[in-house]
Design a protein around this nucleic acid. Sequence first.
DNA 1: CATACCCCTTTGAACGTTCAAACCCCTAGA
DNA 2: TCTAGGGGTTTGAACGTTCAAAGGGGTATG
Lengths: 404, 404
Amino acid sequence: MAAKVTITDVARRAGVSRQTVSNVLNSPELVREETRDRVREAIETLGYRASQAARQMRTGRSRLIATRIEPDRDGINGSVLDRFLHGLTASAARAGYRILLYAAGDERAEIDTFDELVGSHEPDAFVLTSTYHGDGRPAWLRERRLPFVTFGRPWGDAGDAGDAADGDAASGGTTADPGYPWVDVDGAAGTAAATRHLLDAGHRRIGFLGWPRGSGVGDDRRSGWARTLAAAGIDPAGLDQATDDGVADGEKAARELLRAERPITALVCASDSLALGALHAVRSLTASGQLIASGRLTAEGRLTVAGRAGDEEGLPVSVIGFDDTPVARAVGLSSVSQPLAEAAAGCVGLLTRLFDPPSPGDPGTSAASVISAASHTPEAGAHLLLQPSLVLRQSSWPHDHPAG
Amino acid sequence: MAAKVTITDVARRAGVSRQTVSNVLNSPELVREETRDRVREAIETLGYRASQAARQMRTGRSRLIATRIEPDRDGINGSVLDRFLHGLTASAARAGYRILLYAAGDERAEIDTFDELVGSHEPDAFVLTSTYHGDGRPAWLRERRLPFVTFGRPWGDAGDAGDAADGDAASGGTTADPGYPWVDVDGAAGTAAATRHLLDAGHRRIGFLGWPRGSGVGDDRRSGWARTLAAAGIDPAGLDQATDDGVADGEKAARELLRAERPITALVCASDSLALGALHAVRSLTASGQLIASGRLTAEGRLTVAGRAGDEEGLPVSVIGFDDTPVARAVGLSSVSQPLAEAAAGCVGLLTRLFDPPSPGDPGTSAASVISAASHTPEAGAHLLLQPSLVLRQSSWPHDHPAG
DNA sequence: CATACCCCTTTGAACGTTCAAACCCCTAGA
DNA sequence: TCTAGGGGTTTGAACGTTCAAAGGGGTATG
């Protein structure tokens, strides 16, 4: 077994001192070019790699970023965070960091884990996912001056300084500087785009299937729909339903909307789970004759159902989900897609910016260029709000296209 | 901020030397009880945690386990590894280890990453997922004496010693000791259970939808189906199809089987993606009148389609998938479920067994008890073959039950 | 000719832990 | 009384790196 190659081995081989080797690695500009090349060659031939442990002892930096892996709740939407995690791992590696995982059931357990990790593995930063209203994690970390970013806006967390007005549903979320960097996807913009698409297709009575008020993410998504309808001169009142996030819940709530006094002809949903339930509801009502089928169910499970019985418009009922999960792809459900890889790159970018002084003359890697678009609020609270995109599939096609 | 608490601080406070504190942590039996209590109290009040970096420097052990996070390929089956990863994180934490993530596109990139990690963060072990035929990773690691487990059997990898006979399809995989520990789920047992269930429901012409020969996992799953049919006196020839793993691929292949000369009435599939495609095929053929519908499509998307037109049996066409992914849950697809949390615990158990001598007098934690069931081949090649379970849903109900 | 300064390089110390060995005190046996 | 041994504790060194400071040689400056 080849014994570990140390910096001293490299130094001896290159005929220089330890420190010079160290400088070649960390501050190459201090070393004469000729020496540098000699050292580099020695590093190469010996296969030297700096020991993280030793480096960490001296510098106090571990090049580790800790984040939580979530259990896959209902399963359908869980894949969103998995994709984010993959992006995070890749982006971090590019910046010279590794991802350290932990699991925690609730906020208390997570904070206990913070405490333990900070003392033992000493990650350089944390990435918090799934921020929520009243989130106590940012405050805990900030009190201890531990660097972190959140993927998810500060929805007025426990340590929030500026208590943004709560009824501000149409604004797209809090804008007050929370004192820490965050990255998020503009959910309202996503539902707005979905709603606009349906309006363009001729729909007027466009419903919204979401979660109970109070969840930041859910309210944000609802607001995009409401604002877009209102802008088109349509009163959104009575066109939405709030329920828990599950396929069965979504189906039940969708039925309500489809059988309401003012029935809907299209539905924007806060998640793919809800949207899948909505598809089932549409299918079921069609089968039982309460909706008129304008065509058959195709191989792809495409919907070609046309409005409620007696409905004068005759448009197919369209459904649009959120998150563009594998399920959506599989069943042909249109959905709002989050740029998760970019979000992950943004998180890493904001973090490295905290570590290394943001020298303005830098060339800028791809991650850095994402970041350069970040809002330049006071450094601590730099943030990034990314735009989602609408992926159209059969569930929102305006006409009965033959299967490709 | 509170400066880091070191072992020396604790020692001073407890009135002992550094080494005694170290002993309390690592070899408490060496320390007199009274002293031990005093030290423990000091640790508690000061909130001391041993620095991993310093410890690693001295002992050479990082308490890190590295594993790869995979991109979510077609997306549907990706969630399996995510669930495994979650279990791994939890089990590792219980054993005092953390998971270090890396991403790698192909085998070459992964081995490069091994090389880099071994030099820098120095993980104590690797967990390899998705083993495949000709896998070069185990050999690389073994040559360097780096501890690892694979989740997935050795399907005759590049460094395999005993070249197990290849046509041994009914045996459930290679049994030769590859010289390293592994954990896997008995896929053949899963498809066998699925097939048996369908036989019990009265089906005779049970098809199999799988992947092209040569993939260890795929062949294993096919073998369970074939062996069970054969045992029931049914010749499996001509009842199976092989295709790539995708919803569209599955649909196409399922159509072939449903319209074959000897048509099938039930289908066991190697994945949920394929099964979903099969469901679409059944639905589509029904809609176009090529299969007789014995009822309507219910809200849950339940299949109540009854055999091919003119078929004398009249049983509903049943479909069973593999992996019990979120999609299966969502669309009511019966599926074979892998015990992923146990598999993860098994991996951690086998690894810690490599590190710490397997003293036979240990009480045994839950992970250890899983491990105690591991086959006691020569230590190096200990392994664990777990049994999956069959989750029944609407897609394989023998009769037309009313929706709950 | 002394001083200053710059560029490049080296030296000694320190990070916090555990290993290996020594030490101290006590009891038992010769 | 001396030696041996054992339980419990301490001491010095080492792991591999980087920081802080010093060193050495050259050229410019007074």
